[in-house]
Design a binder for these strands. Structure first.
Length: 282
DNA sequence: AACCAGGTTATAA
DNA sequence: TTATAACCTGGT
């Protein structure tokens, strides 16, 4: 089916898809993006403030994709809040149109375990390999796409076999985490009534999940917008803007961002990241 | 050839 | 509590 959603602003799907929060969107030769989300395949084409979305299923994905794309949130208001920090004016201006997707916690957890000390190109390739090997096929416009496998399935894979997907030393983390989640020992789907800090503690129990990965999971799949993942780019840009390019420890930066940006820290992080990677040179 | 990339973990001061 | 090295993989 095809759906058309109009009047979205600010919104730039290219930034959202390639901005590093999701790894399963691919730009086609025709300028449209195709991605697998849950057990759906979506093809998204943006023209100005209009989205034309094609998908494999019936009509029930409209609500789903709107939530996924965070279309119900007023980003004008969020950008206004961010611009109250004068030093962020060029950042907000440059990164306007970015949105934080509402992704699946399990897929996000494994994806960001894979992301540790890794390149985006490798991350995407490994995730694609995992889906092809262990996911379910979906047909869309004559092509086959693959869902992200369940915790139960990855919990049953051997380390040597999983390493064929090029995840390297992260294989044991992925399998152990899958076992913990499949067993129900850590419930990553019950996050709505739990504070960010409490949920973070649970996530840190998973092997391969440290502070940065935990905050990515909180921000990209649990709508914990006070989470502030600090990777090397965020570290560099924070040191540049706020500490005269001096080296500052991660824990200190973490506290600094938490205090300064509070409830909108996650949005600030996203805008800063996009700005740091694509515009500013260290 | 050596080094690095969107970190985590184990080990030592 | 804070600092340092090792770690799969693929590219320069």
């Amino acid at each position: 089916m095809t759906m058309v959603i109009d009047g979205i602003h600010p919104f730039n799907f290219g930034m959202i898809a390639d901005g590093g929060q999701a790894f399963r969107w691919n730009l086609q030769a025709d300028g449209k993006y195709i991605g697998v989300v849950k057990n759906y395949v979506f093809e998204i084409c943006q023209k100005d403030n209009k989205l034309i979305i094609d998908s494999n299923g019936g009509n029930n994905e409209t609500e789903f994709i709107k939530e996924y794309l965070d279309l119900y949130r007023d980003y004008n208001k969020i950008e206004e809040e961010m611009m109250k920090f004068e030093e962020l004016l060029p950042v907000v201006n440059y990164s306007s149109g970015y949105r934080i997707l509402f992704q699946d916690p399990w897929e996000t957890t494994i994806s960001f375990i894979i992301s540790a000390n890794n390149h985006i190109r490798n991350i995407k390739k490994t995730i694609e390999n995992i889906c092809r090997a262990y996911g379910e096929p979906i047909e869309f416009k004559g092509e086959f796409y693959y869902t992200f496998p369940t915790p139960e399935i990855l919990a049953g894979v051997s380390e040597d076999e999983l390493k064929l997907t090029k995840c390297g030393y992260r294989a044991k983390y992925i399998i152990e985490t899958a076992k913990i989640i499949a067993s129900g020992h850590v419930d990553i789907y019950n996050f709505n009534n739990i504070s960010t800090e409490e949920m973070r503690k649970k996530l840190l129990m998973l092997p391969g999940v440290g502070r940065k990965v935990a905050d990515c999971i909180l921000l990209y799949s649990m709508r914990k917008f006070d989470a502030f993942p600090i990777d090397v780019w965020i570290q560099r840009i924070l040191e540049h803007i706020y500490f005269s390019d001096n080296r500052v420890s991660l824990t200190k930066l973490q506290k600094f961002a938490e205090d300064r940006f509070g409830e909108i820290a996650g949005f600030v992080q996203q805008y800063l990241f996009y700005y740091a990677r694509n515009c500013w040179q260290a």
